[in-house]
């Protein structure tokens, strides 16, 4: 394990440096992300894990450029970003396929935006559809697919934009455990195949250990970097690794860190509920 630091080495494609996010509420200022710093190397799979309410999704939105930050710098390949950036592709937690577009048209969406000719973009879209294992479903619409298949369509759509960094916010949160594990395999396989730099936001320890090269553990509110854990498990990995002893040790280590934070979160929520109505923040 390594202590939190402000990595600024030149071989990092994504650098989050001393980022602070503060929201003004009627009850005063609330710090959601508190001076968070870390870096992601090209081709690396980094997961950010933390208890509910620790600011993971806020961090996701800041890195993706959907939300402004109060202080600090987010940069991609040395370029500071202050809004959505073409180098970053986002996969969201909620189901985000376009219901009025077929699978092919969903995946071809980013290619359509750059003005790629129709025949070419359909061919490219089919390549990514095949990559996520949805051959044969090209002409189906999202309402004809399962939740896991829709998430794969979202993933293929994001991959079709060929981002330098794939940013995913709990993409499997709404899925059952088996589908989650199998989709984890698929994502890992794609990540290895494309050497895709990936940043996964999750609260699922198993998912994080199964896929990551490193795991960044966040504290409960305000969200700070508590620890960065190197996952030294052999690659290529599949979901079979969840049964190994080493895997169990990592899960136990991270749970020990998270347990304290999750307990704090739970106590905080209980205190909040105990407050008389009208005085809740």
């Amino acid at each position: 394990m390594t202590p939190p630091a402000a990595p600024q080495s030149s071989n990092e494609i994504l650098v989050v440096d001393d980022v602070l996010v503060r929201f003004d509420t009627p009850d005063g200022s609330v710090t959601a992300v508190d001076h968070v710093s870390f870096g992601v190397r090209p081709g690396e799979f980094l997961s950010v894990i933390g208890p509910s309410g620790c600011g993971k999704s806020t961090l996701f939105n800041v890195i993706g450029g959907l939300l402004g930050h109060t202080a600090g710098v987010v940069s991609v390949a040395g370029e500071t970003i202050n809004g959505p950036h073409q180098s970053i592709g986002m996969v969201f937690q909620e189901e985000s396929t376009f219901p009025w577009r077929s699978v092919t048209d969903n995946v071809a969406f980013p290619l359509e935006l750059i003005g790629m000719p129709k025949a070419q973009r359909i061919e490219r879209a089919r390549h990514f559809i095949s990559l996520v294992g949805l051959d044969g479903f090209e002409n189906r619409y999202p309402n004809e697919l399962s939740g896991g298949m829709r998430q794969r369509v979202s993933l293929a759509r994001t991959l079709a934009s060929e981002p330098k960094i794939l940013l995913m916010d709990e993409p499997f949160a709404a899925l059952d455990e088996q589908t989650r594990l199998l989709l984890g395999d698929k994502v890992l396989q794609i990540q290895q195949q494309l050497k895709q730099t990936t940043l996964l936001i999750t609260h699922n320890i198993t998912e994080a250990v199964q896929m990551s090269d490193r795991i960044l553990v966040m504290t409960y509110r305000p969200g700070k970097v508590k620890r960065i854990v190197d996952i030294d498990l052999p690659r290529p990995r599949t979901s079979e690794i969840v049964g190994s002893e080493a895997f169990g040790r990592y899960v136990a280590q991270i749970w020990a860190d998270l347990r304290e934070e999750a307990s704090r979160g739970m106590r905080d929520e209980e205190d909040h509920m105990m407050q008389p109505a009208g005085s809740k923040s």
Partner: peptide, 18 residues
């Protein structure tokens, strides 16, 4: 319109007309 769909559009840097 679901916020996530709007965010997908924003993540792809769409203009307001797009």
């Amino acid at each position: 319109t679901r916020k996530v769909l709007v965010n997908v559009g924003r993540s792809f840097n769409l203009t307001s007309s797009q």
